[in-house]
């Protein structure tokens, strides 16, 4: 009985983590109100640089010879636990990124998801690992 309840709790917590991780950035180190979360804008371009840094990752995406977008994502700490690494995207990769753009119209946005050159899609929250049982 105790074990069954434990499992149920773990499954519940894991499901909660998967369902709710998208809401987590709102609790992070700054407000996301500067981004227009009513707009999903998709950009295609070439990765100039990928900042795998705290408190936020940044994808610098060249969308033309003269335009570079700065796309803010969650921290490497958060993403590393959800299937990302510093090598998930690399300079020169041709990727497509969906973001919530800055309300002021400048070339920046909040990361939503991307499609890698191999067709794989990455989000910030979709690959959260479930809670683990303690070693005994």
């Amino acid at each position: 009985m105790q074990i069954q309840w434990t499992k149920a709790t773990l499954i519940g917590l894991a499901a909660a983590a998967l369902a709710g991780a998208a809401a987590a950035p709102a609790l992070a180190h700054h407000s996301f109100a500067m981004f227009d979360n009513t707009i999903d804008k998709t950009l295609t371009g070439t990765v100039k640089k990928f900042d795998w840094t705290n408190p936020h990752t940044f994808i610098w995406l060249d969308t033309s010879a003269t335009e570079t977008w700065a796309i803010e994502g969650m921290s490497p700490n958060f993403l590393a636990r959800r299937g990302w690494s510093k090598r998930t995207i690399n300079p020169g990769d041709k990727i497509s990124v969906t973001l919530h753009p800055l309300k002021d119209g400048s070339k920046g946005g909040s990361f939503m998801r991307l499609t890698l050159p191999n067709g794989q899609t990455m989000s910030m929250s979709g690959q959260a690992q479930p809670a683990q049982p303690a070693p005994n």
Partner: peptide, 28 residues
Amino acid sequence: YARHADWHIAEYICEQNNRNSVNEKGEA
């Protein structure tokens, strides 16, 4: 708080690449 037995605490230096800010008026 759910236990994650295979996680470790990672480094978090907020000043490393902080591009956000707030001024004394509360404007971001």
